[in-house]
Nucleic acid binder design. Structure first.
Lengths: 362, 362
DNA sequence: CACGTCGATGTTAGCGCAATCATCCGCCGG
DNA sequence: CCGGCGGATGATTGCGCTAACATCGACGTG
């Protein structure tokens, strides 16, 4: 079980000064491809081919090589491999924060699609701050990804310029835009906000409220929500920015709505976790849902199904966004002509018990 | 803004055959350290020093180099850098699945601690399957991490052998063991199960039940729970393995407990999400909590605080586990003598309304 | 039987960067 | 004025691997 330096056959042309220097530096102790080659009685490139393109090596040779690999516990150095082949096999994924379940879903969709092609994803979490998004981009770019998928549009001009300069496919997702960097896979947040406002109004809501975060997508939902409310002739909705996406924050937001606008009869919270917090707060306060106040969310998370009543929500096909984004990237990497640059995956409103049913059209 | 091939000063000793070959291969189009050096009128190594050890370069030179970097949009190739320096700056983190919030907390604890030292984490998610854990390990090992942190003990002998052979610090976490690979940071799951059984019995529970997953930690909690129940002289608890950690599964498990052992008066679900699902199911069924049946969980997740009644749970300091594991790794990398090999961070039981209060000791 | 062909394998030359050691230059004391 | 010293900078070499081309032998063909 000796994995030491002195394997038979390690070429050592002549032990002059440079070679001694090499001895000193090569202190990793791990077996290298050359050690495997020596043990298998072949050359390094044959070992490489055995691993990357087995069909190019006869079965007998392959067997010897694989046995040598096994015996030495050889594990190829990926950094060296990417450097030499100029293929890193990395897809960089930029995500505001992975702790939001719908984003985790999208990442899962990307991972599932991409793994089949032997690519790995490199996750960068920029916590909703544009400053560190740029910093993060530098770190990711240093890894030489073969493509980049961003959850959300890339707004900061410096970041856009950087991504463009990388010369690799870029997918922006979870939103739509006219000013795409490259490819876009998403849906209309204003449309989703509008659909929910119409649903609440159709169920008899007269004084609507919107609660959401401060990010651009939430702002777009708010805008769509307010515009549709006005079109429906119901009370112009108000908006309260929330700091986080958790139950406590939803409860706090609901309390604030009730205090500031007691007659509110329907609240759209821009994510299911907030909506669940609001629903639980209503129950604590004895406010009947949906009769006194209707509650709706977005994201179709498990909790909105599990509570009683179920929370009306908007399903946004988070995993499909990931899948389609990854497929677009793979097509690009294969050199296929790009299909549509902007892919709208839409959304669907799922009515549940937390909002009043929409009367059937006569 | 031309970033092309023909920058002034790019050394081209003589245009013979090998050089043409180089021209063909070097098709990345991205500026290299040599391009920066040429533009700044220095050598490559000075550019390298400007970035890695600015103090070794005079301010004037540094300024010229930084300007050249800016102008070319140079981003160092991390793979080449690690290959040359034999330092990858990567800490590999093995985690069953990042979708479980407590594990995400631990990862966050690692990230926070490690980032300050300029190290990055490389996350590997093995989905609770030992087979793919080994496969994953090979992929991670190929990246030459400088240390490895595993959420959970590493059980599979092949995986243990592989990790040992890597010659880097290894931390197993979230559990304790006598047979550590290297370092261990965690707490006793049997102890946690026992503490909860004693709490439920002290509150008057006479027929306890345990619900949990099939992983080793859940099994240890079950064992500790049952043993303590027997010691307390209350009904030997039963255990039902659950498939997932979500609300629906918790509801299903509760239904099954009630059906199979209707007189059960206290249930410990081995994670808060299951406990929340069980609590909601009790409310749907009109079972008074905690009077008819007490519910307890583990993990101190937000939901167990937000529901009414609050769910009694065990706080396991998930983030601290990550932090301490990372600190142990950093100490090792700095060459410090290892402190305690096994670090027990304990746990604390948080009583809430979902279990009957423990009467004060006379 | 000479010759082209094709598949298996080997040789050479880097990929882009940093460790090592050499060099160079300014400055100081004797 | 010389030697020595120390800080800044540079030339060389190789990290571990694979692309590109070279080679070699077996085989079929005219």
């Amino acid at each position: 079980m000796d994995r030491g330096q002195s394997l038979p056959g390690r070429v050592a042309p002549d032990r002059t000064a440079p070679d001694r220097a090499a001895q000193r530096r090569r202190a990793s102790g791990r077996p290298r491809i050359e050690d495997v080659a020596a043990l298998a009685g072949t050359s390094a490139i044959t070992v490489s081919r055995t691993l990357r393109a087995p069909a190019k090596v006869t079965e007998a040779t392959r067997g010897r090589v694989l046995r040598a690999i096994e015996q030495l516990g050889y594990i190829p150095d990926i950094a060296a491999s990417s450097l030499a082949s100029r293929r890193t096999g990395i897809i960089a994924v930029l995500v505001p924060t992975i702790t939001i379940p719908v984003f985790a879903e999208t990442v899962q969709g990307i991972t599932d699609t991409v793994r089949a092609e032997g690519l790995q994803i490199l996750l960068g979490d920029y916590n909703y701050s544009d400053a560190s998004e740029r910093e993060l981009l530098l770190a990711l770019a240093g890894r030489r990804p073969e493509a980049i998928i961003s959850v959300g549009l890339v707004q900061e001009p410096a970041a856009r310029a950087l991504l463009r300069g990388l010369g690799v496919p870029v997918v922006e997702s979870w939103d739509l835009t006219d000013d795409a960097l490259d490819l876009v896979v998403g849906f209309s947040h204003a449309g989703a906000g509008g659909a929910m406002a119409r649903h609440l109004a159709a169920g008899g809501g007269r004084r609507l409220a919107f609660v959401g975060g401060t990010d651009r997508r939430a702002a777009a939902r708010a805008a769509g929500f307010v515009a549709a409310a006005i079109e429906c002739g119901v009370s112009a909705a108000i908006a309260l920015p929330t700091a986080a996406s958790n139950l406590a924050e939803g409860a706090r937001a609901l309390a604030q709505v009730i205090e500031q606008a007691p007659q509110t009869d329907a609240v759209f919270l821009s994510d299911d976790m907030l909506a669940a917090g609001a629903l639980l707060e209503c129950q604590r306060r004895g406010l009947a849902v949906p009769d006194r106040i209707a509650i709706a969310g977005l994201g179709n998370m498990e909790i909105s199904r599990a509570l009683s009543p179920g929370i009306t929500t908007i399903d946004v096909a988070a995993r499909a966004i990931g899948r389609r984004a990854a497929e677009a990237v793979l097509a690009r990497l294969r050199g296929d002509a790009p299909g549509a640059t902007v892919l709208d995956l839409g959304f669907s409103l799922i009515p549940r018990g937390s909002t009043r049913p929409v009367p059937a059209v006569a």
